[in-house]
């Protein structure tokens, strides 16, 4: 036994949310695209992958089958990002929030009603790892490491974006779109490109999740996933590269790993009380951070350093 499967599952969830929060950081933190439909794009990737993997009779097996299905699922999520991004391009923040939330709701409804394809409320099995070591825990651990590599790649990409002209352009568009346009920047096209790529990567994370759980349930398409990514990002600091990482570790990490794996509680608490308490605490954390630390924990640390430099205090 390498690692407890419960812990692997918790770690997988945390790392996946770090990936989603990093992508949301590019959308919301830099470009001010208030995407409240994260779960929708993730869900398109999850269900597109599941349907393609299980329902289509491919002439080849794994790992090529996985690669092809995951690639197509990523493209499907990206196309949804392109379509939704085009529809919300000229809306204000409220409109973008409602529009993306509506998209996520539509995805959940489709997954529920298209039973022949998705299994509907009954769910859909048949997914598996694209390899088999003969030990489920080892399979899961390897899959966790693959996800860690993917999210590390996303982190490196975000880090690079912060350090090149494209990142400056995104920040410029996010903070003052008309001004950016007056400087010769095609703001709408730039935002649309970013939204498409980040939505596609959210879809890829969904496909990765499908393999890990090996069973698709429509209950996974609820608002909780979006809420967890938003809370993690805002708590850590939406404009900092590491804000998403720190925020998700302090919120989802505490609940899904520390409390669930290391704090001894009555058994029924893990299934009933903790999930409820988790959402309440996330909501509370969001309110407290927005009131007392609106820049997030890392954002305030940077501001304090800046103020010291300006005032010499």
């Amino acid at each position: 036994m390498v690692l407890d499967t419960f812990l692997i599952s918790g770690l997988f969830h945390v790392v996946m949310l770090i990936g989603l929060a990093l992508l949301l950081h590019l959308q919301l933190g830099l470009s001010r695209i208030a995407n409240f439909g994260v779960v929708g794009f993730w869900g398109v990737g999850l269900y597109a992958f599941g349907v393609l993997y299980v329902r289509v009779d491919w002439p080849f097996g794994d790992p090529i089958q996985f690669v092809v299905c995951a690639a197509l699922a990523t493209v499907a999520a990206g196309l949804c990002g392109l379509l939704v991004g085009w529809l919300i391009a000229d809306l204000d923040v409220d409109g973008v929030m409602v529009g993306t939330l509506g998209f996520a709701t539509a995805v959940a409804l489709l997954a529920t009603t298209e039973q022949d394809l998705t299994g509907g409320a009954l769910g859909m099995g048949g997914l598996r790892f694209p390899y088999d070591t003969g030990d489920v825990a080892v399979n899961e651990l390897i899959w966790l490491l693959v996800l860690v590599a993917l999210v590390a790649g996303i982190l490196a990409y975000v880090w690079l974006v912060h350090r090149n002209p494209y990142g400056r352009l995104l920040i410029a568009i996010g903070s003052n779109e008309p001004l950016a346009k007056s400087l010769g920047k095609p703001a709408t096209r730039t935002k649309l490109g970013l939204f498409t790529v980040t939505s596609a990567l959210m879809g890829l994370l969904g496909a990765m999740y499908g393999v890990m759980v090996r069973f698709l349930e429509v209950s996974s398409l609820g608002i909780e996933l979006t809420l967890a990514a938003v809370v993690g990002l805002v708590v850590g600091g939406s404009v900092r590269v590491l804000g998403a990482v720190v925020g998700v570790l302090l919120t989802v990490g505490v609940f899904d790993i520390v409390i669930q794996s290391y704090i001894p509680l009555p058994a029924d608490w893990y299934t009933q009380t903790i999930p409820l308490l988790r959402e309440v605490m996330f909501g509370l954390a969001l309110i407290l951070v927005l009131v007392f630390r609106p820049l997030g924990l890392l954002g305030h640390m940077r501001r304090d350093r800046l103020m010291k430099r300006i005032h010499g205090a």
Partner: peptide, 19 residues
């Protein structure tokens, strides 16, 4: 609102000189 407040002065100038 003639500047990008989240960018440094240097980066504001760089954004202008992108092309």
């Amino acid at each position: 609102r003639g500047v990008f407040p989240d960018l440094t002065v240097m980066d504001n100038l760089r954004v202008g000189g992108m092309f």
